[in-house]
């Protein structure tokens, strides 16, 4: 449909034809879309993401749990922030990454983008689950309840269902490509939920507190508490990226092995 509507205009307009032919994607982008190049590249990148990620995770956790001072209102319960906030922020960031990869898959039919989108699901769903569970455990001593249908909590729960829905739909079809197409549409529609999660505390009368770091102006948290939080954020980003690279590499190797004539080794195990 979209091709037939594009072709007549491009035939009629020589200017647009000239523009089309003159535009070229950078070579590194073509190489990046090649599964073989991706496997090789990811093997080099993973250690640079994984080991600094683990190191920063340990440093941030020790700093946040044992060195950062007590909160004057929440006491030591505030220390949940060091896993809750990075997990919540990453859940949204990973969803955006998954949606972008889905867009690449839908528009340019890049199979590698489809693989990456699928590999975002486990880590994205786990981050969302951690955000929900740690938020719930933080809510009990502070709000007096584990759960309430607050806009922030509800929209985060919807995010978890979107991740699970993407996984279910992508595996629900006989053809892998059809499954990925349908799941990609869901991922793109679900992007609407991201600003809802972020701005829900401002748009509606929410029990959840307003943004602490990701807001215009100075963060409303003391620097002695902020530093370990930022370190944990970077650690979560690095570890998530390392995970997506690892899983994507495994999926691509599996495809390569299946293409070989002797593939009983994997399937029998």
């Amino acid at each position: 449909m979209s091709q037939s509507s594009v072709t007549p205009t491009s035939k009629n307009s020589s200017a647009s034809q000239g523009k089309r032919s003159s535009f070229k994607w950078p070579v590194w982008m073509y190489r990046l879309a090649s599964p073989s190049y991706f496997i090789q590249m990811s093997s080099k990148i993973i250690p640079w993401l994984y080991y600094p990620g683990v190191l920063l995770f340990v440093v941030g956790l020790v700093w946040g749990l044992a060195i950062a001072p007590q909160d004057y209102q929440q006491g030591d319960a505030f220390r949940i922030i060091y896993v809750h906030v990075p997990a919540a922020a990453l859940s949204m960031a990973i969803y955006m990454g998954m949606a972008f990869a889905s867009l690449l898959f839908l528009v340019w039919r890049i199979r590698l983008a489809g693989v990456v989108a699928r590999c975002c699901v486990p880590v994205g769903a786990i981050m969302t689950l951690i955000a929900l569970v740690t938020g719930s455990l933080w809510g009990k001593p502070m709000w007096g309840t584990y759960w309430l249908w607050d806009p922030r909590l509800t929209s985060e729960l919807i995010l978890l269902f979107l991740f699970l829905g993407f996984s279910v739909i992508s595996n629900a079809f006989d053809s892998e490509e059809s499954g990925m197409k349908a799941a990609s549409f869901l991922a793109l529609i679900g992007v609407v939920n991201i600003p809802v999660i972020h701005y829900s505390v401002r748009w509606w009368n929410s029990l959840h507190q307003d943004a602490t770091i990701f807001k215009i102006g100075k963060p409303s948290i003391d620097t002695s508490m902020l530093w370990p939080l930022l370190i944990m954020m970077v650690a979560f980003i690095l570890l998530s990226a390392a995970y997506v690279f690892m899983r994507s590499r495994n999926q691509l190797i599996l495809v390569k092995l299946k293409q070989q004539p002797v593939n009983q080794i994997i399937t029998s195990k």
């Binding site: 319960a77 880590v123 786990i126």
Partner: peptide
């Protein structure tokens, strides 16, 4: 953890276990 050990440590434990599980599987 003050008096909040029952809330703080499960959060930390869950996060560490989740990361371990993700990486060990892969």
């Amino acid at each position: 953890m003050g008096k909040y050990a029952i809330f703080v440590w499960p959060c930390i434990g869950l996060t560490v276990l989740a990361w371990l599980w993700l990486f060990v599987v892969e």
